[in-house]
Structure formats: structure tokens, C-alpha cells
Design a protein around this nucleic acid. Sequence first.
DNA 1: TAGACTGTATGCATTAACGCATACAGTAAT
DNA 2: ATTACTGTATGCGTTAATGCATACAGTCTA
Lengths: 129, 129
Amino acid sequence: MRPAIHIENNGVPVYVQIREQMLRAIGAGVLTPGEQMPTMREVAVTLKVDLNTVRHAYTELEETGAIVILRARGTYVAERPPPVDPARHAGKIESLAQQAIATAHAAGVDPVDLAERILQLSKRSRDKK
Amino acid sequence: MRPAIHIENNGVPVYVQIREQMLRAIGAGVLTPGEQMPTMREVAVTLKVDLNTVRHAYTELEETGAIVILRARGTYVAERPPPVDPARHAGKIESLAQQAIATAHAAGVDPVDLAERILQLSKRSRDKK
DNA sequence: TAGACTGTATGCATTAACGCATACAGTAAT
DNA sequence: ATTACTGTATGCGTTAATGCATACAGTCTA
């Protein structure tokens, strides 16, 4: 399956965003072990970023054992991808949640309203599929 | 209270890490509205990073309305802004929700998980009061 | 063998991030 | 007025991130 990658202008390097989202796609089962990853060029063109930027992300993914890169043959999800550390993932959620609360507070918005709106929007886009 | 900031070598810019973690501290209630933030120099020395790097982070926090910077007097966590008219308020929620979803996605987090965590945290802090 | 596809690599230019040092400018307490 | 503290600003140098173009090198299929 082709993961939907989304690049944002947060100050976070593009290659980091690609790396994280690919990791999530693998962890979530969107990309399964042995399956071919999207081609570097494919990702580069789709996201309108440089080929070397994608390679940067892929290289790091290979270093962590998440994927295997075969020259001229493509890249594939590793047969035994490193387990997604549950604590690490939970920490990310926690962090994002607190950030969202702070931001909402600063804008005079009730975090509960925000959360409910997020739910509506996400579930709606999920139904499309 | 003094938030414990931790800088990592993730490829994520230092100023982004500071910005995010300060936001997190505010969202978690470690830093409360009206409370003085750690001095820029304090943070710089503690984390062994450049003063301008900290300023970069603080400046962005001010732009989002999370903190208030008073020249020569220090920086403070923003008070909750006065309520605005319902139309703009709804617009803010919409905007924040979309931003949160994008950020979550970029970080490899399911927006639904994020929303549910926000709900938990907000309801909990609501009980305290 | 030819062509298409895929990863690898280089060079050049631009911008951002950062550290380090130094200085300037308000504020508040003594 | 002096001093200490806080934010603001500049200059210099280094490294990293990116985009853009171009080329090289394996692999596979027709």
C-alpha cells in the first residue's frame, strides 16, 4: 500500500518528516514486511522534494533496520522491522497533546472543543477510504 | 516551576525542540499562565546552547500567543485571552484542528489518538479545579 | 542487446541553524 | 547614579539541509 506522506513547514527537516512517517506506516501495517517501498524518485516527485533528500531519509531507515535498500532493485520493508517502541510512541502523543492544549489555551480555545473537531475531521477523511 | 528541557540529536533543530518542550510544559501545567518563564540566558546556559537559539524559540512562542516577552523584564506565560465573537472562535478551532492534524501526521501520530489524549488530559485538569 | 527503471553520486548555489563573542538597551533595586 | 539582570542585535565562521541538474551504475524485461 502507498502511505500518504504529508510535509509541513514546522522547522522540522523534510528528511526527518519522511523518515518518521515511513516508520509509522511500517508500524501501522500500511507497509508490510517484504513489501516494496515507494521508489525514491516516486516519493521525491510526489512530495516535490529532492531525490537526495528522500535518500537521506531512506538511508537512516536502513541504518535502523526498518528497510532494506537494494541497488537498482528497489527498497523493501525489512522482514523483521525493529519493533515500534510503544513508550516512545506514547511519548510523542503525550507531547503533541500537551502542545495542542497550550496552543489552544493561548488562542482562547477550549481544548475539548479542539479535540472534538479533530475527531470529526479525522474520521471524516477516514471514511473516504 | 522549572520545566526540564532535554535536547536530543534527532536532526530536529534545537530551537524547535525548545519551542515544543516549552509548549508542552505549558500544556501540562508545569508552567502556569502569568508565571515567569525561565530567562533566555538561563535556558541557554543550562542547555549549553546559544542565546540567540533560545530567543528564536521564544520568539516563535510569542508569535503563537503562548508567551509574552517583556524587554528587560522577562518573559511570561500568556494569560488566557478574552473571548471573541463566536464566528472567529469557530474559525480558530477549525484552524487549530487542521494544524494539529497536520502536525500529528508529520510526527507519525494518528490524529484520533491525539484527540483522545487531549480529551483525557483536559478533562483531568478540569477536575482538579 | 536496448531501453526502462532504480539506487548512487557530484557539483553548485542558497538558506537556515548554531556557536561564540561582543555590544546595546531598557528595568528595577540599592 | 550604580549595578545587576533581561531582552535585542550584529558579525564571523562552520555545518547541515535542500533544490536543481547531470551523470554513473546495476538489474530486469522485452
